[in-house]
Design a protein around this nucleic acid. Structure first.
Lengths: 188, 188
DNA sequence: GCACTAAACGGAGACAGTCCCCGGTTATCT
DNA sequence: AGATAACCGGGGACTGTCTCCGTTTAGTGC
């Protein structure tokens, strides 16, 4: 990248602290947690926060990249353990659970699959789409998934399922049911 | 109700003005439109706004009750024109379109189907659920809808579909497709 | 018409959040 | 050690929320 010179030691330290504080705050108060408060928790001035992360989105993303990468990586594990169709469903289930449980991750995952969003092209957005792509394609080859589905559409629908489950109880206990309603359809 | 004495003329006038201003502002800027700005547009002090509508929710609801009642009423029209299964799908389609197009109505419709929400028990929440109930039951009797579906679940899933469509393009052009994916399922 | 009163008004102000700016500090290189 | 580029951090302008309370006004009885 353009990172010619490595980050200065203090900069790197503050960066890390902010990330930790942000993860906690976003998980606690959702995506609208106070940024100045995050800076305070990290023991850092708010200027420092805004320099490292120009927007709320940027911080949100940075705070949860690894968690999202983990979900993406989980796709391949599941692909080894289960037949394609089941692997996809199981993965979507875990994805939805993550979406709901970690309060501020929903906005992030949402904008990752939003058409025209700046986040759509960043690292974690693409690895989610690639992970979904592999599972979707495998399931389609196997014949357990409609041919006309794009991976990103599956992700969007999963986001919809997460939303619906959240409305139901806020804890994600309905995910499995709503996901199976989606896969099987609403007809008898 | 407890409305022993009719509202004073000036109160009623301001109430109406606020409602109009709110509808415009919420449609323009979404559910987070500035309340003080709404008061200003209505030519009214902010105290007046907060007296009439203690919470943002209350104003949001008041601003869109009639529109929501209209959607609920539309259910019965469709029930006359179409066979039950199609009527339900068509209604959900219109519902999703409304959810997306009028920015600010999404939050309202969402909390109407949220478990434990205060809005769940108010007038427009119940009439939505009743309208959905009639269509759902008819479709189930007809045999084109799974027996184990609760009306409120259908509303929640529709909300999910609206969310997914919004992610896709923000204009609702994908509603029909995502709705049919839901009804038919993701399998071939 | 007029005076009275309860209801309603409205805007000042306390508070919280966002974000930028810039004087001061510090890590790193020579 | 000294130079310098990078970085720090908090003060402050701005916007939005929501309450409090002195002032105004609609409605009522005479």
């Amino acid at each position: 990248m353009s990172q010619v010179r490595p980050m200065r030691a203090d900069a790197r330290r503050n960066y890390e602290r902010l990330l930790k504080a942000a993860a906690v705050a976003f998980a606690e108060h959702g995506e609208n947690a106070s940024l100045d408060d995050i800076a305070k928790r990290a023991g850092v001035g708010s200027g420092t926060l805004y320099r490292h992360f120009p927007t709320r989105q940027a911080l949100l993303e940075a705070a949860y990249v690894d968690r999202i990468e983990a979900i993406a990586a989980r796709a391949d594990e599941l692909a080894k353990e289960l037949p394609p169709g089941e692997a996809l469903v199981e993965w979507l289930n875990e994805l939805c659970a993550g979406t709901i449980q970690v309060r501020g991750m929903k906005a992030l995952l949402g904008s990752a699959v939003t058409d025209g969003s700046s986040l759509a092209v960043t690292a974690c957005g693409t690895s989610m789409k690639e992970a979904a792509g592999r599972l979707v394609e495998a399931a389609q080859r196997e014949g357990t998934l409609r041919e006309d589905l794009e991976p990103i559409e599956v992700l969007r629908l999963a986001h919809g399922v997460a939303t619906a489950s959240e409305l139901a109880d806020g804890r994600g206990e309905h995910i499995r049911r709503y996901l199976s309603l989606l896969t099987d359809g609403l007809r008898p």
